[in-house]
């Protein structure tokens, strides 16, 4: 992803009020992590597993810091139990910043990614997690702001799936 796009994502997260990010880096959006770390308004926590990211973000969120978890699409599979019991059953607001690998618009798609990509949205639907697909920079700020507003309104996770321009 171009540096300018990464800066735009981080700027929009900050503008929307996100101040805590737990993350497990991956290939599509990883340029955002040094920018997040350098920006003093975020508390940034690397984790060993996306499930852990969800539970740590839940604690941060319930402690008063609007929280996000940045992960690859595969992380939704890995963390689905915690998304269900902490995100939905306990009802914890958090933003999921998901690299939507294996989607039709994924510029690096291959036999490695396509299958998990095909099943990602059905997984989110089965968990009843609201999601929005972003494939270009136009309207990025509004979508991030809207997703954060939604997560506070429903006190549950909301997912942003980044593909297209963000996967170059």
């Amino acid at each position: 992803m171009e540096l300018e796009l990464a800066e735009k994502i981080v700027g929009a997260l900050k503008e929307a009020g996100i101040s805590f990010v737990a993350y497990l880096p991956e290939t599509r959006l990883s340029q955002i992590t040094p920018i997040l770390r350098e920006d003093g308004s975020f508390m940034v926590v690397p984790v060993a597993n996306e499930s852990e990211g969800v539970s740590i973000a839940a604690g941060a969120s319930l402690g008063g810091r609007p929280a996000a978890v940045y992960m690859e699409g595969s992380g939704v599979y890995v963390s689905s139990y915690n998304l269900l019991v902490l995100g939905k059953r306990l009802g914890t607001p958090m933003l999921l910043i998901v690299a939507y690998y294996g989607s039709v618009l994924d510029k690096r798609n291959s036999f490695l990614y396509a299958l998990p990509g095909i099943h990602l949205i059905p997984i989110l639907q089965s968990l009843d997690i609201q999601y929005e697909v972003l494939d270009k920079a136009d309207g990025l700020e509004d979508k991030i702001k809207g997703a954060v507003k939604m997560m506070h309104a429903i006190k549950q996770p909301v997912a942003l799936l980044f593909t297209g321009e963000f996967t170059a």
Binding site: A22, S51, A60, L86
Partner: peptide, 21 residues
């Protein structure tokens, strides 16, 4: 008390709370 009634999540939540408070 926040008794989350779920296996494998309490420690992570505690870490998140301890970080922000």
């Amino acid at each position: 008390n926040l008794l989350v009634a779920s296996m494998g999540a309490a420690l992570g939540i505690g870490v998140g709370l301890a970080l922000v408070l």
